[in-house]
């Protein structure tokens, strides 16, 4: 099936927030193509009457009581932060919105 292009690899890298280099684009395009060709054979077995399995163990309704559990102190929460200010994580300016 796939013949994955450089542009597609670039698109995937953007989606995955990876600032890949030009050299990597070439390398990954080749490798991804080989891997995806190989794994595409899952389609041979996957007929419509086979239900998909998302979880290895068939559990349902695993719920927690709505009871407080001690968390982290502010200082612990921020201890691993690359930068912090005023009790908050300091990050570079955010583009766009959500």
């Amino acid at each position: 099936m796939p013949s994955i292009s450089r542009d597609e690899v670039a698109h995937l890298a953007r989606l995955a927030r990876l600032a890949v280099t030009e050299d990597e684009l070439d390398l990954f395009a080749g490798q991804l193509d080989v891997i995806l060709q190989a794994v595409a054979r899952v389609g041979e077995l996957a007929t419509s009457d086979v239900p998909p399995t998302s979880h290895a163990v068939p559990l349902t309704n695993v719920f927690r009581e709505d009871v407080l559990r001690p968390g982290l102190r502010q200082q612990q929460a921020l201890a691993g932060a690359p930068a912090a200010e005023a009790g908050r994580f300091r990050v570079p300016r955010i583009l766009g919105e959500e």
């Binding site: 995806l36 389609g43 077995l45 996957a46 239900p51 399995t53």
Partner: peptide, 24 residues
């Protein structure tokens, strides 16, 4: 990148979806 590809709209059924059926 493989995972991002396999979950992308348009590819999900052929890749991730099929893989989950193989799992069954």
């Amino acid at each position: 990148m493989i995972g991002t590809y396999a979950l992308s709209s348009g590819y999900y059924d052929a890749y991730y979806g099929s893989a989950q059926k193989v799992r069954t």
